[in-house]
Structures are given as structure tokens and as C-alpha cells.
Amino acid sequence: MIVISENPFDPWQALQDYQTSAAMQGQYGATTVFVGTMRDFNDGDTVKSMTLEHYPGMTEKHLSNIIGDAKQRWAIIDSLVVHRVGDIYPDQPIVLVAVWAAHRGDACDACRFIIEALKSNAPFWKKEHLSSDQSRWVTHNSKGYLNTKVSD
């Protein structure tokens, strides 16, 4: 399931609600969850809020393709992706990726694949509003590590 949300969401509640409603009871032995949350800093500046824009239709299409690719590569039972758009504030969740599988390797690998592919391909754009009252578009995603040597 893919949800693009203009409103704040509680990822843990979304997870519980989806897991209860989805027809996978008794089948899954592993659940991997990624939650991306807004920081109040980036590139040395204090960020007081952010606006997330997307391309309606293309975003959903590409998220669906990414999940389809994950299902081809790993034996996953189900997945849930929720992504915020609109105005977001520090500590608010931006994205939830949850993957259910019979085994941990499939769940962990597919979850990592989905979030990385989302960050590379899904048409979302972040605009940061700084404490200085200036605004700027985020021009690239980080490699995902504070210590860049880890990612080499």
C-alpha cells in the first residue's frame, strides 16, 4: 500500500493499523521498518520547517514500480509506504517504509532497497526554511551516513 499524505501521521499507529487489517496473519516472521524524520539542521544551518513537493501520479507510479521490483527480488509478503508532502516541522515523520516477509533477510534487504530507490527515483523535492528566514531547495540526498568512510 502506498499513501501520500498532506497531513502529519504517526508511523507506529499506521504500522499497527495496516498490520491488523492486511490479510497476512500467521504468514510473516519478519517485519522491517524504516522511519525518516525531519531534522532541525542540515548543511550547518538550523532548519525550522520544510515544504515537500511531489509530482502527483508519477510519484505513486514510481513507488509502485519500486515495490514491484522489490517483490521480484525478495520473497516479501506485503509492504506499506507512507510519505508526507506539504509543510513539515522538526521531529515530524517524513516517510515510513515497512516490509513484511517470512524471513528476516528478505524483509531487511527489501526495506533498504525500497527506501534507497525512493530517495533516488521518486519525484519528491524538499525546500528548507531556515532560522535566518531564508529558504533553499535541497539539491541532493546524502549517502545516508554521517561518516562518509562507512559508505565507501
Partner: peptide, 10 residues
Amino acid sequence: VAFFPPVTGG
């Protein structure tokens, strides 16, 4: 046809 900068979601 759509034109846009590199994506930065997630």
C-alpha cells in the same frame, strides 16, 4: 512532458 531537478524525497 515534465522537467524537474534531481529528486530529494525520503
